[in-house]
Write a protein that binds this DNA or RNA. Structure first.
Length: 814
RNA sequence: GCCCGGGUGGCGAAAUUGGUAGACGCAAGGGACUUAAAAUCCCUCGUCCGCAAGGACAUGCGGGUUCGAUUCCCGCCCCGGGCACCA
């Protein structure tokens, strides 16, 4: 009889149909099972699936399948991000409605995903670009406004000319837009809506302790860095000849006796008060032109003086381009002797350098001889009453003194800024606010939600809020006084959508609330989240913030939404991240045509560990395809034996293969439970297959039947279509996903002999085989009987023996 | 400058707690089957010496600890990522 050959193009459509149409993988409601929520980062509908996506989804799907076979109730939903700006830009380019564009791309993505049969629960599918989702974004916005967490203010904002909109700080990468990496952002002065993320800065930082075990170190580090907490002291300097005060922030109040000037940021309010706005313009220009650290320090003397509250000295007030209005108080005290930046500034403008801290056990530096600041901690030397104290103690006592005297206080400053959420575009959730001349800003009454986007908006892409050009949309009555009022024309950042979408999955049809608290409590927090590291300080900060806000609104009870985070590596092709815009995508559709989706999935997991970048080399795909075909032939060849599966070994080959099988089960289970090195999981399955080929003719039918069944089950998370087909070939009842994951039996995995490495003076000389767990003298005897070992021992004395049972014997000789 | 990663054959990579370095796969070379090709199967495959047995050298570089180091410690070099006049 001719062998059956592996034809993925024929078998895959068979199972795709069953899985996508029958809803086979819907979340079980069997409450007796433990729950597991696995989630991949919300994909955006670019319309084209590429291998980067496939790798991301293959990782999550393998995990979801494994957990399901382990007996868990698994929630594995998928939804779509409206991804407003690209949608709108593409629509402008193609003269299409952005909604139609987005929906057609979603349909296209779904069609492509269907051929992979990822185990998504399509009943819970949501789109953040649909009206019912707008409603809850707006509802949240109003709740936050009521709590003072959403506010509007005029501010200098980052502006991307290509997007034609404002960007949040987190969305600026290397001074460029995160979507247009070579186009520098500009600064504009605009009225903007903000969410008060800084109100949660301390919690966002402190609660990292709750999740740091399950999150990659580097993401935790990046968030710490981004939030940027620093502890210090705020101190008031009085304006000489006035009762006005300027407050400065410093982390080194112990150096304040060395302060030789106060420096204001160019945008500091006093600059205008002093009438120096014209003079300051070049400084602001130089700041904006700044490229990282090559800003030449510049500034000028304002002609005023300030009084140091500790020593009472008068120091000049300067303006400096290296002082940032957006950090601390926008003003600093300059201590050139003990801060490198101040040192550079003061030397340039001949401002005195006054050392006041000496190195512990050293001498006070001499100002004339200093070539750089002494910025270390040391001993306070010229510090009034605090002289002689170590820096740290002086800091604490001087801060307490400032507080007692009422001219300062201990203070914590964060680098994190509030999240700017206004976008001047059409395709996004309208901000549900109304501007009334009499009543000020008013929220849209809740019963009028959702505020929907008007149809027939002319999209010009020139950077005006398109909604402000639509009178029917803009002109409304004030909900408070009924007078003519204007609707807010900005839309929300789409990161608002992604901040809570994974809560909506638990209750996607709810029309009374974003979700029922009980429904969320049943699944949350997310057990495992999988996505790219590029969201470390974007989405992954926003969604943590959002959860804390929801907690304070009483919707949820936990601090953190995501227990474990996995950041998969990028797929690299020709030295660059695979993406449509770079034109280096490998189309999964072509790969499915030639090899099938099982091969594409399995290969994307085999080529590199999932947390590492994967350099795409097409040649390896062939090998994965060959391997699957090998398994297919092996299983189908023996599928009709009719033998009952058995774990009773009847000969040495049986014993050896059962041993190998259970070692493989142990290894793959461990990989799933800990580090997800699916490349080694697949390698282990290949080894088992190679062993089966080598012993095929010697195995008893029962053991062979047993091993082949387990082999198919082990492959399920990686190659589901083929596994299902083979399961049917084996005359078993599917779906394989409902079959229990193979149980590891230690008694069968145990080998009865061990190969011991024999070393002489730490160098490998031979291998000997002894009984499992053999004592040292037995191993010793075997080693001495070995010809090669004996030669190296000849004429020498064994002075020390190191024996690691079942592994190694090292003889130290002289 | 500061904070994270990482550096192992021709290539992707293994080595999970200090114990056989290079599993598994790709590519390459040789062979079997075949009229031929494809497919499949078998063999070789870190470098150097050697017919072989075996030996020497090898995990970015230099030291150290240890019976034994890819793994731990110290000092450097290179690559990737994040932050950066953040006071």
């Amino acid at each position: 009889m001719p062998e059956k050959s592996y034809r993925p193009q024929e078998i895959e459509p068979k199972w795709q149909h069953r899985w996508t149409e029958s809803g086979l993988y819907r979340t079980s409601t069997d409450a007796s099972k433990p729950k597991y929520y696995v989630l991949e980062m919300l994909p955006y509908p670019s319309g084209t699936l590429h291998m980067g996506h496939v790798r991301n989804y293959s990782i999550g799907d393998a995990l979801a399948r494994y957990k399901r076979m382990q007996g868990f109730r698994v929630l594995h939903p998928m939804g779509w991000d409206s991804f407003g700006l690209p949608a709108e830009n593409a629509a402008i380019k193609n003269k299409m409605d952005p909604g139609a564009w987005t929906r057609s791309n979603i349909a296209s993505m779904k069609r492509q995903l269907a051929s992979f049969s990822f185990s998504y629960d399509w009943d819970r599918e949501i789109s953040s670009c649909e009206p019912e989702y707008y409603r809850w974004n707006q509802w949240f916005f109003i709740q936050m406004w009521k709590k003072g967490l959403a506010y509007r203010k005029k501010s200098r904002v980052n502006w991307c000319n290509e997007c034609g909109t404002v960007l949040a700080n987190e969305q600026v990468v290397n001074d460029c837009c995160w979507r247009h990496e070579t186009l520098p952002v500009e600064q504009k002065e605009l009225d903007q809506w903000f969410f008060k993320t800084t109100a949660y800065a301390d919690q966002l930082l402190d609660d990292l302790h709750e999740i740091e075990d399950g999150w990659p170190d580097r993401v935790v580090a990046m968030q710490r860095n981004w939030i940027g907490r620093s502890e210090g002291t705020e101190v008031d300097f009085q304006l000489d000849g006035s009762d006005q005060k300027v407050r400065v922030f410093t982390t080194r109040v112990d150096t304040i006796f060395g302060a030789t000037c106060v420096i204001l940021a160019p945008e500091h309010p006093w600059v205008a008060e002093f009438g120096l706005e014209e003079q300051v313009k070049p400084l602001i220009a130089s700041q904006r032109a700044q490229k990282n650290d090559d800003l030449e320090k510049d500034g000028f003397f304002t002609g005023r003086y300030a009084v140091n509250p500790y020593g009472g000295e008068k120091v000049p007030i300067w303006v400096g381009n290296f002082v940032l209005m957006s950090y601390g108080t926008g003003a600093i005290m300059a201590v050139p002797a003990h801060d490198q930046r101040d040192f550079e500034f003061c030397r340039k403008f001949d401002i005195p350098v006054v050392p006041v801290i000496k190195p512990a056990g050293g001498e006070l530096p001499k100002a004339d001889e200093m070539t750089e600041a002494y910025a270390e901690y040391g001993t306070a030397a010229v510090c009034g009453d605090w002289s002689g104290l170590p820096s740290a103690d002086a800091k604490a006592q001087m801060t307490a003194f400032a507080e007692k005297e009422g001219f300062g206080k201990g203070s914590i400053t964060y680098r994190l800024r509030d999240w700017g959420v206004s976008r001047q575009r059409y395709w996004g959730t309208p901000i549900p606010m109304i501007h009334c001349e009499k009543c000020g800003v008013q929220p849209v009454p809740e019963e009028e939600l959702p505020v929907l986007l008007p149809a027939n908006v002319e999209l010009t892409g020139i950077g005006e809020s398109p909604l402000s050009q639509v009178p029917e949309f803009i002109n409304v009555k004030c909900p408070e006084c009924g007078a003519d009022a204007k609707r807010e024309a900005d839309t929300m950042d789409t990161f608002v959508d992604s901040s809570w979408y994974f809560y909506r999955y638990v209750d996607p049809k709810n029309d009374k609330a974003p979700f029922a608290p009980a429904a969320a409590a049943a699944w949350f927090p997310v057990d495992q989240y999988i996505g790219g590291v590029e969201h470390a300080v974007l989405h992954l900060i926003y969604c943590r913030f959002w959860s804390k806000v929801m907690r304070d609104l009483g919707l949820v009870t936990w601090n953190e939404p995501i227990t474990r985070l996995f950041t998969q590596g990028m797929v690299i092709k020709d030295g660059a991240k695979m993406s449509k815009s770079r034109g280096n995508v490998v189309s999964p559709e072509e790969m499915i045509q030639s090899y099938g989706s099982d091969t594409a999935r399995a290969f994307s997991l085999f080529a590199a560990p999932p947390d590492k970048d994967l350099d795409w080399q097409g040649s390896g795909v062939e090998g994965m395809s060959r391997f699957l075909a090998r398994v297919f032939r092996l299983v189908t060849r023996h599928a009709d034996s009719g033998a009952a599966p058995s774990s009773e070994a009847t000969n040495d080959a049986d014993k050896a293969i059962l041993c190998k099988l259970h070692q493989t089960i142990e290894k793959i289970t461990a990989d799933f439970e800990s580090r997800w090195h699916f490349n080694t999981s697949l390698a282990a399955i290949m080894e088992l297959t190679n062993d089966l080929y080598a012993r095929e003719s010697e195995l008893s039918d029962g053991v062979l039947a047993e091993t082949l069944r387990k082999l198919v089950l082990l492959l399920e998370p990686f190659a589901p279509h083929m596994s299902e087909e083979l399961w049917q070939e084996l005359r078993e009842q599917g779906p394989v996903l409902d079959v229990a994951w193979p149980e590891f039996r230690p008694d069968l995995a145990e080998e009865d002999s061990s190969d011991i490495a024999v070393q002489v003076n730490g160098k490998m000389r031979s291998m000997v085989t002894v009984a499992k767990g053999a004592e040292q003298d037995v191993v010793m005897a075997a080693a001495q009987a070995d010809e090669n070992v004996a030669r190296h021992l000849d004429g020498k004395n064994v002075v020390k023996v190191i024996h690691i049972p079942d592994r190694l014997l090292n003889l130290v000789v002289r």
